[in-house]
Design a protein around this nucleic acid. Sequence first.
DNA 1: GGTTTGATTCGACGGCTGTCGATGTCCTGA
DNA 2: TCAGGACATCGACAGCCGTCGAATCAAACC
Lengths: 122, 122
Amino acid sequence: MSNLLPVLDVSSSATAVAEPCCTPLTRAPLAVEDAERAAGMFKALGDPVRLRLFSNVASADGGETCVCDIQDVGVSQPTVSHHLKKLREAGLLESERRGTWVYYRVAPGVLAVMAALLTPDA
Amino acid sequence: MSNLLPVLDVSSSATAVAEPCCTPLTRAPLAVEDAERAAGMFKALGDPVRLRLFSNVASADGGETCVCDIQDVGVSQPTVSHHLKKLREAGLLESERRGTWVYYRVAPGVLAVMAALLTPDA
DNA sequence: GGTTTGATTCGACGGCTGTCGATGTCCTGA
DNA sequence: TCAGGACATCGACAGCCGTCGAATCAAACC
């Protein structure tokens, strides 16, 4: 239940190599293990409510936002929390408590990784 | 049950406008309707088997491949067929029967649409 | 300390989904 | 016409998932 989705070398924030993290889907058949990880990320975005929550965070000024500012997505507040947890577990979001409120931001590198995976051939 | 996921203006193969089809997730909060469509696509890629099938098609020489050449993904033949149907319904794949075999290819524009959605800010 | 507000966790429930074997359909070749 | 291969559909079943209200936790404010 821990250490889900290392998201390939997104963890290489230290070495900071500019090399593309992962082979595009279109380049070669995805290995079983890579498919497992990548599918986890896509799955996390595969729910309309979750996708809107993610978009709300991703488009927030300053790169982060309070839960209280994005929870108007048509479901109950516990459900919002549940979805945010899923996004966190998938490695797409990070959260931090500051005083009364909890702030969410997009995990660094995640967008680039997913975009790279979907890079068309041409 | 029909006309699922028009995938925004991917259907504009006639006009062929080079304009970006959709606003990135990071640009502004996704509208409810857009989230519904986009989530459908991500959801389709949210299964490891389906993602591998998609990758197999996307990375095939000539841009298309026979089902018989990609069905070795560890599940039964009916299950492969089921997943390919899901990918078709999500607008990600197209299929065509030629004689005995059925060929699949990535629906035009789909990769660009999804990659654009995930375009990072920076 | 007690109360209020913000957020997560818990337990439950209905519906969806991935999987399979069996069957059906379409095409080819003998 | 019939046999056989390629692929899709059907029916069933177990497990997962999204949702909710209730309960809990955490911080702040009186």
